[in-house]
């Protein structure tokens, strides 16, 4: 009897962790979808998230306020977006190179600031508002449902915000006039331009908004890891790159990005939780725990590769990729 309850708890914990450790992917993916819908391929997700993470965390701690933390993650990541927009829209720089630069720059800045603080790096436990702000919020009644209550309705505020942003972005793209114009720019900027859509303004706004959303994701990761600045890996630790692949997996739909996040999250969680999860497995699945942990670590990236290959084999007609993504627009081009 006891064993069964333990098994149920383990499974619940596993599902809970899928959400808690991977919602960052949703932020990254939705931010990148909004960016790509404007015809801009911003490969700087990783760096933008890292910048949002470090500045959001530090400012949040210094002021002991969640809201200011979120605000600064938005501002600092938004500035990365502004930089990307200025370079690619105004100066017409190559988008791929600019994005990669921002990734390198962002992660570099993250370590520069974090390591630079050394022992002065604020510990999250010292700041009540932050550590409490990252605690779960129990939705009345719904959180009492077994399993689902814990997995879905007992998450921290930024999980709910992330899902809300994804749904809002989906509605925005599909049912609003600015959303229609944005999609038009991503498909055929010259056509949108001839209809009087302000391409430069739209690109700037959406690149910045997209980056800001990524930034919240970075900040979220800082909170989840409880601000422990140790070791050599960044808080965002490759999530930014997976988010770029997830955009393709979600076929440029913020709603599908939620599903994609859960699926990728599943594989991602296997790597860290496989040991304990195996306890919950019935006997005939016991062999799963014998698979080396390295395999589970590689799994998310392996899945990413498979998804990319499968996607590239699909015919253009079914694809939702904005046709003009990655191509700079210059009105007087001949």
């Amino acid at each position: 009897m006891n064993i069964q309850i333990d098994a149920l708890n383990t499974v619940t914990m596993f599902l809970f962790n899928i959400i808690v450790y991977n919602i960052v992917l949703l932020y990254g993916t939705v931010g990148e979808i909004i960016t790509e819908k404007s015809g801009s391929l911003n490969l700087g997700v990783e760096g933008t998230m890292a910048v949002g993470a470090i500045f959001g965390y530090l400012m949040g701690c210094y002021t002991n306020s969640m809201m200011i933390g979120i605000l600064f993650s938005i501002i600092s990541a938004g500035l990365c977006g502004l930089l990307f927009a200025f370079l690619t829209v105004t100066l017409q720089a190559n988008q791929n190179v600019t994005g990669l630069t921002i990734s390198t720059f962002g992660v570099g800045l993250y370590f520069f600031v974090g390591k630079g603080l050394g022992d002065n790096f604020p510990a999250m436990s010292d700041y009540s508002a932050i550590s409490e702000g990252a605690n779960p919020i129990y939705i009345p009644f719904l959180s009492d449902i077994p399993v689902i209550g814990k997995v879905i309705f007992s998450q921290n505020i930024l999980v709910y915000v992330g899902v809300a942003i994804a749904i809002l972005a989906w509605v925005y793209l599909k049912y609003t006039k600015p959303g229609l114009k944005l999609r038009a720019i991503g498909e055929n900027p010259a056509a949108a331009d001839s209809m009087g859509v302000n391409i430069t303004l739209y690109k700037y706004i959406h690149i910045i908004i997209g980056s800001a959303i990524m930034g919240i994701g970075g900040y979220y990761m800082g909170l989840v890891l409880r601000g422990s600045f140790e070791g050599s890996s960044c808080w965002t630790d490759g999530y930014g790159w997976i988010a770029i692949a997830l955009v393709i997996f979600a076929s440029w739909s913020p709603a599908k990005a939620i599903l994609g996040t859960i699926i990728f999250g599943f594989f991602n969680t296997l790597q860290s939780r496989s040991g304990s999860l195996a306890q919950a497995f019935p006997d005939f699945l016991g062999w799963l725990k014998d698979i080396p942990a390295q395999f589970y670590s590689a799994l998310p990236f392996l899945i990413t590769a498979i998804v990319l290959v499968a996607e590239s084999m699909r015919k253009r007609k079914n694809k939702n990729e904005p046709s003009a993504v990655g191509i700079n627009y210059y009105r007087e081009d001949r």
Binding site: T176, K177, A184, E187, A191, G196
Partner: peptide
């Protein structure tokens, strides 16, 4: 009417026209 049509291939005819609509409404 440009020689190479300025149309969005994946949009419906109506959406292609609505693209130029700058009246205040937010929702389509």
């Amino acid at each position: 009417v440009h020689q190479h049509f300025k149309l969005i291939d994946v949009f419906s005819a109506a959406d292609n026209i609505c693209l130029g609509d700058n009246s205040g409404k937010f929702f389509l």
